[in-house]
Design a protein around this nucleic acid. Structure first.
Lengths: 332, 332
DNA sequence: TTGTATGCGTTATCAT
DNA sequence: ATGATAACGCATACAA
C-alpha cells in the first residue's frame, strides 16, 4: 500500500474508480453522471478519504466561498454579538469567515482589505472607522453603521427611531427633565442619529432636555462634573438619562451610585445596544435593543445578493425597548 | 488601454516591466534580484496595482498562512477574549484566521474540521467538546482546555493552582467555612482541576469546605436550594464561596442578594476567568484571572513550531488573583 | 543572475 | 454521458 504523504487528489480517485478525471469532478459537484459510475466514484472517495482542495477550486473558479469580516474587536459585547451572528448566517450558506480584528485602526483596516483581496474573498463586511478607506471596484463590500459612498450598502439599526423611542419611554415613565449623554468618535456615522432622534422625541413630547457630548479621548470625569453641576441639595435635577450606549450607561450608573443617586427611583437610565451580562443573561440596563441577528442576516444577504432586489444605499432595521432594571417597571 | 475585468497577474507585471515571469516572482518574494530589474518590477506592480493571489500561492506551496479557530461562540467573555488575542497573535505572524463558531456542538465541530482541511489550513486551534473528534494525522492541532491524546498539545491555565489560590485567598481573607460551586459539562477537561486544587488548598489551610456540583442542564435553582439549606436564622453558614467561573459567580451573587446576604461583608465570593465588564472595564467579581494573552501566544507558537523545543502534551500557564469587589480588600 | 518550463488540483470545453 | 486536455496564477528546478 502506498503511504500518502499528501492528501489524495481527484486523480487518485479517478484511478481508484477506474474512471476519468472529469467524471470524478462531476460526481463531487453533483452533476448528472451514470449511476454505476457515480457509485464507483463514491466508493473510491470513501476508501481514499478524499476531500476537495478549496484552493485549487478557488483558483479555477475564482469563487472561494469565503468572506472577510472587519471589526474593531471581538471583546466588546456588541461586536462580539455581531461576529457570532454573522458567522452563524454564513455557516447556513456554507460560507467561511476570515476574521479581521482591526482595533479600529485605520491603517490596519486598509491592510486587512488588501489581505482579503489577496485571499480572493467573495466579499467583505466591515464595521470600520477609516474615513478614507479604499475599496477596489471589484470587491463586494457591505458596511455596518457607516455610509461609505454610493457604491456600498450600509446596514444599521434605526438609530434615529431608537433615540426617539428612548425619549418617549422616558416620557411615558414619568420623566420631566432628561439628559442625553454621548461619547464616541467624532466621525459621522449612523449611530450619531441617536442624538437627533432623541431630541426629536423630547420635542414632540414636550420633554425638557439637556445634552453633554464628549469625544473619544475626553475624560469621563467630565460627565461626573456635568452631573454634579446639576445636583442641588443632594437632588439631581434630571429624572431621566439616555446614554448613547449600554457601555456608557454602565459607567454613568457607577457615577450616579457614587453621587448617592438611586436608580431608577431618583433617576431612570436607558442605554443603547441590548448588551447582556455574559452574553446571554439579563440586560445590563434598560436599553434600546439592536436587532443584531437581523443585521447579520441583512449584511450577508446584501453581500451575496440572493433574491435581493437592488443594492439599497442604507438599510435601517427596527429597534425595540427592553426593561433592564434601570427604569421604573411598565405600568400595566 | 485594456480594461481588466480580472485582477492583474504576475504575467501582466512581467510584460509591463519587460522581464520574465520568474523575476517578478522573485521580487514579490524578496529573493535576490538585480537592482535595475527590481526597480522596474516594483514600478510595474505599483502601476498595475498588482496583488498576489493567495489561492495560487497556496495551491503551489501547500502553505496557506491560514489557521482555523474552533470555539463555541464569540459572545461569552472568555471565548471572546481568546478569539481576540489569538487573532492579534496571528496578525503579528502574518497569519489569517478562519473563525469557526461551533456552539459546542460535536457534529458542527467535526464538520468545521473537514472544512478547515479542505481549506488547506496550516493548522487548527480548538476549544472543543466532542470527545470523539477525529483529526487527521497530517493536520497540526492545538487544543485549549482539553487533552486530546498524545499527538496533540493542550494549552490551558494552571487550573489546579487557580483553585488552590482561591482557597488560600479565602483563608487569608478570614474565611472559616467555604463552599465550592460548579456547573459545567461532565466531560473530563482541564478546568475540572479547579475543584481538586480548591480542595487541596482548603486541606492545607485547614479550611472547612462543602461542594455543590451540577451538570450542564441541571437547573440553577439547585444552587439556591443548597444555599437556603445553609441559612440558619437569616445567617449563611458559609463566609466564602468559590465559583468555578465568573459567569456562575454572577448568578450566585444574584441569588445571595435575593437571600439577603451581603457581599463581601457576610460572604465573600471568588470566581474564575478574569471577566471584565464590557470587555475592558472592571472585573465582574473578585476572580482568578486566566492569562488569555499568554494562552493565545502559546497556542500559536506551538502550532507554528517556531523556536519551540518539542511538542509538550500539556502546557499550564500561571493564573493570578484579582480583586473585584466581592471579597474584602487586602489588608496592607 | 535571469529566463523557461513544468506542475500544483480543479473545472470546463471540447470531441468521442 | 464520458474521457482527454487546456487553462487558472504562481513557484521552482533547471537551463542559459
Amino acid at each position: 500500500m502506498k503511504k500518502d504523504l499528501s492528501a489524495p487528489t481527484m486523480k487518485d480517485v479517478a484511478r481508484e474508480a477506474g474512471v476519468a478525471l472529469g467524471t470524478v469532478s462531476k460526481v463531487v459537484n453533483g452533476l448528472p453522471v451514470g449511476e454505476p459510475y457515480r457509485l464507483r466514484v463514491e466508493e473510491a472517495i470513501q476508501k481514499l478519504n478524499y476531500q476537495v482542495n478549496s484552493y485549487a477550486q478557488g483558483l479555477k473558479a475564482s469563487r472561494t466561498h469565503t468572506i472577510a469580516l472587519l471589526i474593531p474587536n471581538t471583546i466588546e459585547p456588541f461586536f462580539a454579538s455581531l461576529v457570532y451572528h454573522i458567522n452563524l448566517t454564513l455557516l447556513k450558506r456554507k460560507y467561511r469567515m476570515l476574521l479581521c480584528s482591526t482595533d479600529a485602526d485605520p491603517g490596519m483596516e486598509q491592510e486587512y482589505i488588501a489581505m482579503a483581496q489577496q485571499n480572493k474573498v467573495d466579499g467583505i463586511i466591515g464595521l470600520t472607522y477609516n474615513p478614507n478607506l479604499i475599496i477596489e471596484e471589484g470587491t463586494p463590500f457591505v458596511a455596518i453603521d457607516r455610509s461609505m459612498g454610493p457604491r456600498i450598502s450600509c446596514v444599521t439599526s434605526d438609530n434615529f427611531a431608537g433615540g426617539q423611542l428612548a425619549a418617549e419611554k422616558l416620557a411615558d415613565l414619568g420623566c420631566k427633565n432628561v439628559a442625553f449623554l454621548r461619547i464616541g468618535s467624532s466621525l459621522t456615522n449612523e449611530p450619531n442619529k441617536r442624538k437627533a432622534g432623541f431630541e426629536n422625541g423630547c420635542l414632540s413630547r414636550e420633554l425638557h432636555y439637556e445634552m453633554k457630548i464628549l469625544n473619544d479621548g475626553d475624560p469621563y470625569e467630565e460627565f461626573e462634573t456635568f452631573l454634579k453641576e446639576h445636583i442641588q441639595g443632594g437632588k439631581l435635577s434630571f429624572d431621566g438619562i439616555f446614554c448613547v450606549t449600554d457601555h456608557l450607561a454602565y459607567r454613568i450608573l457607577k457615577i450616579l451610585r457614587k453621587l448617592g443617586q438611586k436608580v431608577p427611583e431618583d433617576v431612570q437610565v436607558i442605554g443603547f445596544d441590548g448588551t447582556r451580562h455574559f452574553g446571554f443573561q439579563e440586560y445590563t440596563c434598560s436599553t434600546i435593543v439592536q436587532p443584531v441577528s437581523e443585521i447579520a442576516q441583512m449584511c450577508v444577504d446584501l453581500l451575496l445578493q440572493d433574491n435581493m432586489p437592488a443594492k439599497p444605499p442604507l438599510v435601517c432595521l427596527p429597534v425595540s425597548y427592553a426593561y433592564g432594571g434601570t427604569t421604573l417597571e411598565e405600568e400595566r
